[in-house]
Computed example of a mutant assay.
Amino acid sequence: MTAVVELKNVTKTIRGRKIIDDLSFEVEAGEVFGFLGPNGAGKTTTIRMIVGLIGMTSGEIAICGKSIRKDYEGAISRVGAIVENPELYKFLTGYQNLQQAARLTKAITKEKIDEAVSLVGLTERIHDKVKTYSLGMRQRLGIAQSLLHDPKVLILDEPTNGLDPAGIREIRDYLRNLATEKNLAIIVSSHLLSEMEMMCDRFAIIQKGKLVNVQSIASEEVASDKKTYYCDVDNWNEALKLLARHGIQGYKHEKGIRILLETCQIPDVLRLLIDHDLLVFEITPVKKSLEERFLEMTNTPEVASNV
């Protein structure tokens, strides 16, 4: 994949206070990139710098190799963005809103408008007035508006705010589809960790303006060769006593017993349990949720109430 958004040592200082502190990361074409952090961490400030709404104190931001500082017009022409809420004329139809937006950019044809409408699934309602739209439909119309000029990057700040579960799922599905079909780099800022886990390919966590970590949703960074497994057996107490005698610590869990093993130990543990007439129904690796990983990386339990 190719990096289409690059932040290098970006810092923002306001009244002597560092709001963003030496932030660096890259976003690749075709991926949905989550931007996470507690309230006040600097997510929206960073997004505003990427789209040029506020300047950076130092550092560099490049879109498709073009510098926001040195070639703002060239860089921002590759970006579509909704910061907070899409701005729409509610007394006009969805289609009329897109026509108004199209006037701001040269060479946007009727075919391009129709393509954007189709991509976000609004074909049947596009000629209705926006005031009749649900919040989810307005978000989708805002995304269509952001896609008219064929951007390489789509940036959405809290796109699921105020949506019901059905609306959240709609937006999630459309963003995944856009990343795949259009090879877009999509940056999504949100505090809904469960939704980000289903939507994103990778995520960055910032706290107090600093980058904490960048990880893939699919993989976890493991500090050792051992992983935690759930093992469902017919007699949990006997299994725990047996494993303890062989130097393997475990404890009860609602899904069975929970044990820490190296991969090469699994066949031996299964054989040990079976040889002692214990029935093993299942053994599965424990996958930490994005919420657990977030709290581990930020290392501040009180953050949970602000996420």
Score class of each variant (00 low, 15 high):
M49S: 09
F281W: 14
P159H: 06
V153N: 04
I274Y: 05
E220G: 06
G209L: 06
N161V: 14
D225E: 15
A166Q: 15
M196S: 01
R69N: 14
M56Q: 11
T57F: 12
I19D: 01
Q215D: 15
C264Y: 13
T123W: 00
I113P: 02
A223H: 10
L279A: 14
R103G: 07
A144K: 05
M1Q: 12
G94I: 03
G250F: 04
N161E: 02
L279V: 15
P86T: 05
P301R: 00
D232E: 15
S216L: 11
A75F: 02
I14P: 07
R140T: 00
C231Y: 01
R293I: 15
E84L: 04
F203N: 00
E111T: 03
F281G: 12
W236P: 05
V153W: 04
N299E: 13
I20Y: 08
I248H: 08
R78K: 15
T11C: 11
E238I: 07
S194W: 05
S224V: 08
A239T: 10
V233Y: 04
I61R: 09
G80D: 01
K131L: 07
G162M: 09
D128N: 13
P267G: 03
D275N: 15
L240P: 10
A29M: 11
L211C: 06
N213W: 00
V188W: 09
R138P: 02
I206W: 00
D71R: 06
R15L: 12
W236N: 14
H191S: 07
G40N: 11
L278C: 09
A179R: 09
V10M: 02
Y95C: 02
I274W: 04
N85A: 05
T57G: 10
V51R: 09
M56S: 10
L295H: 02
R169Y: 12
I68D: 01
V117A: 05
K182Q: 13
A239K: 04
A41T: 10
G37E: 02
Q100G: 00
D277K: 14
E87Q: 14
G209P: 11
E302R: 09
T11Y: 06
K12I: 07
S24G: 06
E254K: 13
T44I: 08
R172C: 03
I19T: 04
E302Q: 15
L184W: 08
V32Q: 01
V222G: 00
S194I: 07
Q207M: 09
G52V: 07
T46C: 06
A101N: 10
Y72Q: 11
V51F: 06
K208W: 01
